[in-house]
């Protein structure tokens, strides 16, 4: 169901409109349904093969300027294609493909990678593909019920290099990972375009609960990195409390954490929020990026790339 721009709660507008370059474009984009997308599962197929088959079906595909293996496909019937059945393609929202892409240069040679909040596995399946099914991925999630979906998706794509663990990341034993992905539980404001119900329970106070957990997760993720390792922290929400403030907290409590600039050819990213609620964030946080829905016709997203 798509919502109408007029029914966006006033406190939500008041919070986020001042942060965007074009308020009307932002609000209008929120009430448009999110285009459906998929990723080529390179463990099983190639983009040439899939494009050719979809052309044969008469299903239109649009390429994505910043990722050669991503396609936008607005035909809901794509879910009934042979390629979906065999796992040659994996249905995944475009912005959700970004965290693994930020570390794609180190993945082919990586020995041990952690996906700390992994279920239902969009990032894990992509990591497996970018690693060519080599090395080891620990795919962890605290939720037993979501592990089922994770397992199903790993089977679907044929990810052999994975180990699923089911625990609170905070209780994870000491280890040395080459790369860590923390795709944190969040208030999911950026998914409004596919899930209007986010507004049913939305409140500015709700974000505080998430922020507390996120601050623990980001520090734990950093502690699990080997020296020289890279962590990506991401959320699909707009709240600075869950984004810049979380990264700021990491920089405060772990002085050896350094941020790396993020640039993805063909993707429009935006600067971070520099101060919020009267507090100024560490200037280093400005190397993180925001992705606003109206810039690339996607969901909303936040990304920080951290080096140890």
């Amino acid at each position: 169901m798509t919502g109408q721009a007029e029914s966006i709660p006033a406190p939500f507008r008041a919070r986020y409109c001042p942060l965007v370059d074009d308020e009307n474009a932002f609000l209008a984009s929120l009430s448009r349904l999110l285009p459906k997308a998929f990723r080529i599962n390179t463990l099983k197929s190639t983009r040439e093969d899939v494009s050719e088959r979809f052309a044969g079906y008469g299903i239109g595909l649009a390429t994505v300027p910043w990722y050669e293996d991503a396609f936008v496909c607005d035909n809901p019937e794509a879910g009934f294609s042979l390629e979906h059945f065999t796992g040659a393609i994996y249905m995944q929202e475009l912005v959700s493909m970004l965290p693994p892409l930020l570390i794609r240069d180190i993945l082919p040679g990586a020995r041990m990678v952690l996906d700390g909040c992994a279920a239902p596995g969009s990032k894990t399946t992509q990591l497996a593909a970018l690693m060519g099914n080599r090395g080891t991925i620990i795919a962890n999630d605290v939720s037993y019920s979501r592990i089922r979906a994770l397992k199903f998706n790993l089977e679907k794509v044929g990810a052999l290099n994975t180990v699923i663990t089911n625990r609170d990341l905070m209780a994870f034993p000491d280890m040395d990972f080459d790369a860590v992905i923390i795709d944190a539980p969040c208030s999911a404001e950026g998914t409004i375009r596919k899930n209007w119900e986010v507004f049913d329970t939305w409140s500015a106070r709700g974000v505080q609960t998430y922020a507390r957990v996120q601050k623990q997760l980001i520090v734990k993720g950093f502690d699990l990195l080997a020296p020289g390792g890279t962590m990506v922290y991401s959320t699909c929400t707009f709240a600075p409390e869950e984004n810049e403030a979380v990264v700021d907290e990491l920089l405060k409590s772990r002085p050896d954490a350094k941020l790396e600039p993020i640039a993805i050819d063909g993707l429009k990213t935006s600067g971070t929020v520099e101060s919020w609620d009267g507090a100024e964030f560490d200037p280093e946080t400005r190397k993180a990026v925001r992705i606003w829905p109206h810039h690339n016709d996607t969901g909303g997203f936040f990304l920080a790339k951290v080096k140890k």
Binding site: R111, M112, G135, T136, I137, I138, I147, K151, L154, E155, G158, A159, L160, N161, T162, V163, I164, T165, N166, R167, P173, M175
Partner: peptide
């Protein structure tokens, strides 16, 4: 199951590789 050669020794492993 067929899985990675290098699996850390740790508790609470639910699944290694694929059946």
């Amino acid at each position: 199951y067929l899985g990675p050669r290098n699996v850390p020794d740790m508790p609470k492993i639910a699944t290694i590789g694929l059946l």
